[in-house]
């Protein structure tokens, strides 16, 4: 691959959601094994990339591939607790946008 590819052009699902009121979990799911392997091999899911993207420290980010579902899960702290006074997204369902344009 020479030209850069955006994640949104190769993933089938890019979603964010609460994993409880303290954590945000981002699932990226692919259609085929080749793409899944290529994206992982490209280092796109290094914790530090997501840490930088979401303004948290590296050790707060968990990246867990789940090959059975051709998926990678990234879990990190929410900005505010779900539904608390300062929260902006109770379900955490619209926090995935920065991931769409990750390039590899």
């Amino acid at each position: 691959m020479t030209a850069k590819t955006r994640l949104r052009d190769v993933a089938k699902v890019i979603r964010s959601k609460n994993a409880g009121p303290l954590l945000l979990t981002i699932d990226v799911i692919f259609d085929d094994r080749e793409t899944f392997d290529a994206v992982l091999a490209a280092g796109l899911f290094a914790p530090r990339r997501f840490a930088a993207l979401y303004g948290v420290s590296d050790n707060e980010v968990a990246v867990i591939p789940y090959p059975q579902a051709l998926a990678v899960k990234v879990t990190l702290p929410r900005l505010h607790r779900s539904g608390g006074p300062a929260d902006t997204d109770v379900y955490g369902a619209q926090q995935h946008a920065p991931v769409l344009d990750l390039e590899f």
Binding site: V13, K17, A19, D27, Y66, Q68, A69, L70, A71, K73
Partner: peptide, 16 residues
């Protein structure tokens, strides 16, 4: 198969 496998991930901090 895809939906069932993907559901294992859903709303959970860890997929497995």
């Amino acid at each position: 198969r895809t939906r069932v496998a993907a559901h294992t991930l859903y709303e959970n901090p860890s997929p497995s």
